[in-house]
């Protein structure tokens, strides 16, 4: 196996008494799409900031391209692209100026900045908005401009912190399509998300983080197989009665989970479990059998939904 692009060993980040990242081990291979999954406050962004060499690890070792961020920060940053959680676009510059001024931060020549700007505007479907003011762009366009800007140095590693949070479904799909193209071009993608569908769409491999630790690791499919059942039965009872029905569901499937708004029954055969529910005389207001998802894996591992 080739030298990993990112190698973190017992990586720790503390802010005063608070431990944001609590000793994680991660390796990302070249060309991989790797995800950090977890609820808000799980330590994803802190990890990303350490990898992007703007935050010093408190403890442990971190190597990116085999280099140490503490001594070779500028050299590493020259080869990575960063899409931060909140856009840091320059609102005093036009769309195209945002790209070429950023290119200058990487010491690219003016001619090179202009050449790449033309290409990237096309890639981000923003050519017609080249002269626009950033504030006039929609949320999805801003996000695409952020991604275009992060590519100005032709990075071999792209870090995306919650790339589609706050976007409408259509804008998300456009963005996923662009990220997928980058992946096909061989760019290594590392992203954080709390969207399960995003992780399933984009990631070859991911880790689930909770309270600064990694609680599971694998491909989306393997995580589901390992931690969840094949199917999930979702039952909704009259408001406020979920708890009392949870007792009656005992022994059904391999596990039950009472959420505030519904009860989940993990079973390899969801339909059979539903029949059993009816046989036991329960009449849920609605019932749904679906395939298990990463969301279920997360719930099983942490006892919480990602919305928490």
């Amino acid at each position: 196996m080739s030298e990993p692009l990112i190698r973190a060993h017992h990586l720790v980040k503390k802010f005063g008494d608070f431990t944001a990242v609590d000793g994680i081990d991660v390796e990302v291979q070249p060309g991989e799409a790797f995800g950090f999954l977890g609820p808000n406050g799980a330590g994803k962004s802190s990890t990303m900031r350490m990898i992007s060499c703007v935050s010093k690890p408190t403890d442990g070792t971190l190597r990116i391209f085999g280099l140490d961020p503490v001594t070779d920060g500028p050299k590493i940053r020259a080869r990575i692209g960063v899409v931060p959680q909140l856009d840091t676009l320059d609102t005093e510059l036009s769309v195209q100026e945002n790209l070429w001024i950023y290119g200058r931060f990487f010491d690219l020549s003016r001619a090179e900045c202009r050449r790449r700007t033309t290409e990237l505007l096309d890639f981000a479907q923003l050519t017609e908005r080249a002269e626009s003011v950033v504030d006039d762009l929609s949320g999805g366009m801003k996000r695409r401009l952020s991604i275009a800007r992060s590519l100005i140095n032709e990075p071999s590693l792209l870090l995306l912190d919650e790339p589609t949070t706050g976007l409408d479904p259509q804008a998300r799909h456009v963005l996923w399509d662009r990220l997928y193209r980058l992946k096909q071009q061989g760019v290594t993608l590392v992203l954080t998300t709390h969207y399960m569908d995003e992780a399933e769409q984009l990631c070859d491999r991911l880790v689930v983080m909770d309270q600064g630790r990694i609680v599971a690791e694998g491909s989306p499919r393997s995580l589901i197989e390992q931690y969840a059942t094949r199917e999930v039965l979702e039952l909704r009872f009259a408001a406020g009665t979920n708890d009392q029905f949870a007792d009656q569901l005992h022994g059904l499937g391999s596990r039950q989970e009472a959420l505030p708004d519904r009860v989940l029954v993990y079973a390899d055969d969801g339909e059979a479990a539903l029949q059993e529910v009816h046989q036991r005389g329960m009449r849920p207001e609605s019932a749904l059998v679906r395939r298990a998802s990463l969301e279920d894996v997360f719930l099983l591992l942490t006892g919480r939904t990602l919305a928490d």
């Binding site: 500028p74 050299k75 931060p84 320059d90 931060f105």
Partner: peptide, 13 residues
């Protein structure tokens, strides 16, 4: 505007 955050993600220190 967080201009410096953006700059610090590049080789700028």
């Amino acid at each position: 505007a967080r201009i410096y955050d953006a700059a610090l993600a590049t080789p700028m220190g």
